[in-house]
Simulated assay, not measured.
Amino acid sequence: MQADPRITALEAHFREVQSTRMQDVPILNPRLQVEAIGFQPFEDGLLGVLVSPWFINLVWLPPTEQDAVATDEIVLGLPAGDYEFCRSHVPAVGNFYACSLFSPVLQFESQAAAVLTAQHVMLALMDGRMHAARPEAMPPKPAKGNTCSRRDFLRGKFA
């Protein structure tokens, strides 16, 4: 697949943000840099992960003809399940949608670790078996008679 110029523009935009507005922000991980990982066709657009020194986001670039008719939030049905994305706009890129995976990213020791994590995220999200492994419903709430006081909670008595 030939590289989409919007991916390059997205990387350039966040490098510029890093060197200007985010330059002295304490949540920056100096071991990380901006890099687009694993972008692939999905829902007529492109889906991948954007690594930066302050976040790792799942990013969907819609088809360019959809740029003009954009909603603020969308839910993408990935093989592993449904994920909510929020719209952003960068003039050189157009509209794109992001779903936060990690923020901040201080726990990553190296760019290689962040890239490997991003690659594994993409593999897992595109694997339909992950959806089947998710519980379909939340466990039932305990009956009102089983409430736990603050004192019992701090002592480890939950029932």
Rank of each mutant, 00 (worst) to 15 (best):
A70C: 02
M122C: 07
I27S: 15
D4Y: 08
C148D: 05
L58P: 11
D127M: 00
E43I: 01
L76R: 00
M22C: 09
L154V: 08
P53I: 09
L154C: 12
G81N: 02
A12Y: 02
M130Y: 01
K157R: 14
L61C: 02
H13Y: 14
A112H: 11
M22A: 15
G38Y: 08
E84C: 06
R87G: 06
V59R: 05
S110A: 11
Q2H: 07
R155A: 15
V51E: 03
L28S: 13
A114W: 08
N146D: 15
D24M: 09
D67C: 01
E109F: 03
N29S: 12
G128S: 05
S19G: 13
R87N: 11
G81K: 02
P135C: 05
R6W: 03
S110P: 01
Q2N: 12
A36C: 04
G45W: 01
Q66K: 08
A132H: 14
T147G: 10
L101I: 07
F158T: 02
P5Q: 12
T117F: 10
P140L: 04
L78R: 03
F108C: 05
R150A: 14
V69Q: 14
M22E: 15
H131V: 01
S149H: 01
D44E: 12
L123V: 07
E73Y: 10
Q23N: 11
P41N: 10
D127L: 00
L125M: 09
S103K: 13
L78K: 01
W54P: 00
A36I: 04
G128H: 04
E84M: 09
K144G: 08
C148Q: 08
I7P: 01
P104Y: 11
L101H: 08
Q66P: 00
A132V: 11
E73M: 03
R6G: 04
L28I: 12
V121Y: 15
E35T: 14
N95A: 12
A143F: 12
V17H: 06
E136D: 07
A68F: 08
A112W: 03
V90A: 13
R87Q: 12
E16H: 14
S88Q: 07
G94R: 09
